[in-house]
Design a protein around this nucleic acid. Structure first.
Lengths: 230, 230
DNA sequence: TTAACTTTGTGTTGTTTTTACACAAATTAA
DNA sequence: TTAATTTGTGTAAAAACAACACAAAGTTAA
């Protein structure tokens, strides 16, 4: 008989983006050893609950959000002292959401839920800073070879929004003309006929949308999304 | 108090390569519900044992091997009926080894250990075929952006060995001249002064080695290994 | 109402990278 | 010695990338 005193949790690194800043979601613990401490949203899974379901449930419970994109990041379990009673192994998930779509609300276990700019994330409990770093890396990489940036934006966006998102997350300058040319060449972003003026001043721009159906179709024909430039 | 009746296991998808064929390691179970069934090497982790250590231990115990490359692949846990007594969540690891370096020997739990050509893997127990598929995909992808092919070859190899490895694993033709030019341009493969004749006939070729130190150094200078062509 | 400012939108050219392609040299087997 | 096999090498055309500037549409302030 196997004698194992280990419990399984899930945690989520949820990224949000707004006006040139990348944010990470953290919640403040209400109970336990680390009460008041900021940690990633997450918690123990139920015996009959799939991992993904558990993450979605916790995000709903602790912050009141439903994400646009969710994938497994990795499993962490060698920080054996998370709880005194047993070892905890945590499966971390990488998630993207548009913060505008939700008002954060801490429901049950969490005292508070809050967006932290990625460069101002406080010291989190457990090994959660490590998870954030890994997820941040994943985000940067993935942005260049998968069209996940759209999951951080409104459904309709200005080309400059997309460009700024890439600039700020990848932390480098991008040539506006080359960027636009490249993205449009893929044929997965379509122009609507809506003109819109956003900020204070300047020429109004057209709104664009990401055509997911087209993208999935192209994938079958061996299309490879790829944005990498100086 | 958390009441969770779940156990944690690790499993490894170990790839080996020899003469144009990619192999996966499987072991035959000796005990339990699935006795005689082929499965991936793996098993339950100990309470105080890091995940990586557990995989290495199982590989040693069940097949007598030590791998060249090992990284986490993903965590599987939604196939709730692996064991009747409890749910099992398994952290799968991706591993590479040069089969020539070992004679497989099934030690404790395993009745037998065997290399299966990737396209002749039998139906494995649990969700192990799914893991193999995911790992196979990972191998193909990773081969193009990380120099992991060398972990499947002898320390000294012919350029044609490397080329054949890429051809056969990626299942496509490669232009010999362009491939060589590209790889050599990275400066991470060095030519030894050894000439060697391998097969039956043909002009002897020089042996090459992968310069890992040089590679690590280049990484710090933002070098990006990348092999993708028609 | 005009001038200054801000943001969107658009093409071309030079440079680099990728692709396609063929033949001589060294060896073995017949 | 001839045929077969494998290694080793360069060039030219095509495609992709990088660099770059100015007009159009709107707002704000003098």
């Amino acid at each position: 008989m196997i004698n194992q005193n280990i419990k399984i949790a899930v945690d989520a690194i949820v990224f949000g983006y707004e006006k040139g800043t990348l944010y990470v979601l953290a919640v403040q613990q209400r109970f336990g050893k680390l009460a008041d401490r900021w940690v990633l949203p997450g918690g123990f899974i139920l015996d009959d609950e799939p991992l993904l379901t558990a993450v979605e449930r916790e995000l709903k419970e602790e912050a009141g959000i439903t994400v646009n994109y969710l994938e497994q990041l990795g499993t962490f379990g060698d920080n054996i002292k998370r709880d005194e009673r047993f070892r905890v192994i945590s499966v971390a998930y990488f998630a993207l959401v548009n913060p505008k779509n939700f008002v954060l609300k801490a429901d049950t276990d969490a005292k508070d839920a809050k967006w932290f700019p990625i460069d101002q994330v406080p010291q989190l409990g457990y090994d959660h800073n490590e998870m954030v770093n890994l997820a941040h890396q994943r985000l940067k990489n993935k942005l260049t070879y998968q069209p996940i940036g759209f999951d951080l934006l409104d459904q309709e966006f200005l080309f400059s929004d997309l460009e700024n998102l890439y600039c700020s997350i990848l932390e480098r300058d991008i040539d506006r003309r080359n960027f636009r040319k490249k993205i449009l060449s893929f044929g997965i972003v379509t122009e609507t006929d809506k003109l819109v003026k956003i900020g204070a001043s300047g020429r109004p721009g057209k709104l664009f949308t990401f055509d997911k159906t087209k993208y999935n179709q192209l994938l079958k024909e061996n299309f490879q999304f790829d944005i990498r430039f100086a």
